[in-house]
Design a protein around this nucleic acid. Structure first.
Length: 721
DNA sequence: CATCACGCTGTTTTT
DNA sequence: CAGCGTGATG
């Protein structure tokens, strides 16, 4: 154990936050102000003063964040810090509910629905309801899930929420309302809890059951909550109940970094906190230890334009640096080109890839860049967006295990039934109906009286399920059995079979860390790995980071590129929340900018440009893109504006053709006079050669700088040159 | 009744 | 790209 000289490693404000262990404490911590450091030292301090580690609770935004903080505390002080209880609100709620759900009339054997389970259930209910499609399109399942979830988090009625935020679908409000009710009933019947239920029921448990509340109060004598600006009203209530009996509660946050309002988060929680606990002490951390002054000037300027702000400006003792650059890269392909070029330059300057990151608003905004990086052989890891757990093959495989663990889980059962040959929507529903009526075990599927001669596949499934449900079958064995069963189906269903097979095998090492199937599945739901690389000890080596801003919280890099797409968003009726949405975009930009230590480059495709996923349809549906007005109207001297020249070098088209081993073909697309071998120009991709004609209005073009693309002539503006 | 080929469409972020 | 609906096919 090391003796820590707190006054040597912390500034006065941080020191106060660390040493004030008793009573409620609100820490307002600007970006890069050593917030994590403060939490880590506070954990160390608590353990050092003799608080048993199990009695300390650290609530963070992701489980990973908690783990990393405790790891750090253990490293710099006392090994026992590793035993501090840490996790998210959801994981804590789950831990408690697994024990006490009985008080709420639930079985402790409930299944946690992740987002895609929720959507699937909603989808099936929509089909049952037979809503008649009115004049406008009925919202798709992900939108419906968003509406229902947000209403739950804000404790609003569906209709009220839709009036405020989904006015474009208001005519469907009665149907959505009914859907929401059916969804609630179905969950109850099937012993399902979605993410929102975990939180809501946890609060209910504490509000209504004094015994459990007192027990938790005794168990966790010291509580810390990170990212408090991202909590919602329900979570604030939970905090209130958790600390009800001892008031040893510290919350840390920064209102300028609140970017989760879509989950019902409300940064005003931070300023309500002293009302919950009137004797609250407030500490502000305003010195930034991360960025250069020019970067902070930009960050401050962004926030100065905000409608509502509480924290003061950040300052740093880090001297001058380069002005942040704002670059108009004209089109998205050129932007990808520009960013990878700039990365190359930083590399030549001696920087390493792991010191750089590219941040963006939405996962798909980096598609074009990813292609370009791959072309140049620049390795990268990507965070955010599509999840490993959400890929169809992983869901398929796990559904087999889930349907055994919870007999009521008809979602998973339906899913695996539909994988059996000759069983689709109708038969699977019939089987499920029958099983519900007869109260069968899942492994009795093959006894379904409706089975015809084509339905032999059910026997194989029944056999697997019986094995999975067997007493001695642990998580690892279960995965092995399921893979063995599922592999032929996988081969049949997907053509990129080898990759998906490797993904499935990634589950094995993870499964072997668990004793019980149930807890393995729970953890996969509550702590889903981001990618296959997250599953095992994969060496990421020296890679560039690509990340959504949401996933980049709590991290920092020497050089940060931000690629931004903003104007053109929120086209439809965000009636009341339009302004709030813009304000949240501002805070997103702030979070992104404050990740940078030394260099910051903002770039955007200023020109009206084709859609980013041009690969298949060549779509040129125009929409304006660019940095929003709050960036363009920054005070002078805060940034340096630039634009990107045309980087394409001319090269002989026949050289390209030859390199690709192509020959000129003679036939012609009707009416357009385009032939294979013709040189063409695309507004975004530049010059290319038609390599193949497909049907009347599709052509495959080999672009000099962007490789092969299939373009739809109905959409694309392809000129002959 | 299941499956396949085809065409159309597109806010986003995560526990 | 991927999800979805539609109409044709087995």
């Amino acid at each position: 154990m090391n003796q820590i000289r707190y006054d040597k490693v912390l500034n006065p404000a941080q020191l106060t936050a660390v040493m004030t262990t008793e009573g409620p404490l609100l820490v307002i911590a600007g970006a890069g102000s050593g917030k994590t450091r403060t939490l880590v030292y506070r954990v160390a301090r608590l353990v050092e003063t003799g608080v048993p580690p199990e009695g300390v609770l650290l609530l963070t935004f992701t489980r990973k964040a908690a783990g990393e903080m405790l790891e750090r505390a253990a490293g710099l002080a006392d090994e026992r810090c590793r035993n501090v209880s840490g996790g998210t609100f959801h994981s804590l709620a789950h831990r408690v509910l697994r024990q006490h759900a009985g008080f709420l009339g639930f079985s402790t054997n409930y299944t946690v629905l992740d987002r895609s389970d929720m959507e699937e259930l909603i989808q099936s209910l929509v089909q049952e309801m037979q809503v008649d499609k009115g004049s406008i399109r009925f919202p798709k399942k992900s939108t419906l899930a968003n509406i229902i979830s947000k209403a739950a988090n804000l404790e609003k009625g569906v209709e009220d929420l839709m009036t405020d935020e989904y006015a474009q679908f208001l005519e469907y409000a009665p149907q959505v309302n009914k859907l929401s009710r059916l969804y609630g009933e179905y969950k109850k019947e099937s012993q399902f809890m979605d993410y929102d239920d975990l939180i809501l029921f946890f609060r209910k448990l504490m509000a209504e059951n004094q015994g459990i509340r007192e027990q938790l109060g005794r168990q966790y004598r010291y509580i810390m909550v990170d990212e408090y600006q991202d909590t919602n009203a329900i979570q604030a209530d939970i905090v209130k109940w958790l600390a009800h009996d001892h008031h040893n509660i510290m919350v840390v946050g920064d209102d300028s970094q609140s970017i989760y309002s879509f989950r019902g988060a409300n940064y005003r929680n931070m300023f309500e906190f002293p009302k919950l606990f009137p004797e609250t002490r407030v500490v502000k951390l305003e010195q930034n230890y991360r960025s250069t002054q020019p970067i902070l000037n930009l960050s401050n300027a962004i926030m100065n334009q905000a409608e509502e702000k509480y924290t003061k400006c950040l300052f740093t003792e880090r001297g001058d640096g380069n002005l942040p650059r704002v670059v108009d890269a004209r089109t998205e392909p050129e932007q990808a080109m520009y960013v990878s070029q700039a990365i190359r330059e930083q590399l030549d300057r001696g920087l390493s890839l792991k010191d750089m990151a590219v941040l963006f608003r939405a996962a798909y905004h980096s598609f074009e860049l990813e292609v370009e990086l791959a072309r140049r052989g620049i390795p990268f890891v990507k965070y955010g967006g599509f999840k490993f757990m959400e890929s169809a093959h992983i869901k398929d495989l796990l559904a087999h295990l889930r349907s055994v663990v919870n007999r009521e889980d008809t979602i998973s059962l339906g899913r695996i039934l539909r994988l059996v040959k000759n069983i689709g929507q109708n038969k699977s529903q019939a089987i499920i109906q029958w099983m519900r009526e007869e109260k069968c075990h899942p492994w009795q599927v093959a006894e379904w009286p409706g089975a015809g001669k084509g339905d032999d596949g059910l026997k194989g499934l029944a056999q697997l399920l019986r094995q999975l449900g067997g007493k001695g079958t642990g998580p690892k064995r279960a995965i092995e059995l399921a893979i063995e069963y599922y592999e032929p189906i996988l081969k049949e269903r997907f053509d990129d079979f080898p990759r998906r097979q490797r993904d499935l095998e990634q589950l094995l090492p993870m499964a072997s860390r668990y004793q019980k199937l149930r807890s393995f599945l729970d953890d996969l739901t509550l702590e889903p790995p981001n990618s296959a690389a997250d599953m095992g000890p994969v060496d990421r080596g020296d890679c560039l980071t690509l990340s959504t801003v949401h996933s980049a919280k709590g991290l920092e890099w020497a050089v940060v590129f931000i690629i931004w797409v903003m104007d053109g968003y929120f086209p439809s009726a965000k009636a009341n929340s339009g302004m709030e949405a813009i304000e949240e975009e501002r805070r997103l930009m702030y979070v992104a900018a404050t990740r940078a230590k030394d260099e910051l480059i903002l770039c955007y495709p200023g020109q009206e440009s084709p859609r980013p996923w041009v690969s298949n349809d060549g779509g040129a549906i125009p929409y304006t893109r660019g940095l929003s007005s709050f960036i363009q109207s920054l005070p002078s001297g805060v940034v340096e504006y630039g634009s990107m020249g045309t980087p394409f070098k001319t090269r002989d088209v026949s050289w390209v053709l030859k390199k690709a081993g192509l020959r000129r073909e003679e036939h012609e697309t009707k009416g357009r006079g385009l032939r294979a071998g013709d040189r063409v120009r695309h507004p975004a991709f530049g010059q290319g050669v038609i390599s193949k004609l497909q049907g009347e209005d599709k052509v495959e073009v080999l672009f000099r700088d962007f490789g092969r693309r299939l373009l739809h002539l109905g959409y694309t503006r392809l000129e002959k040159v």
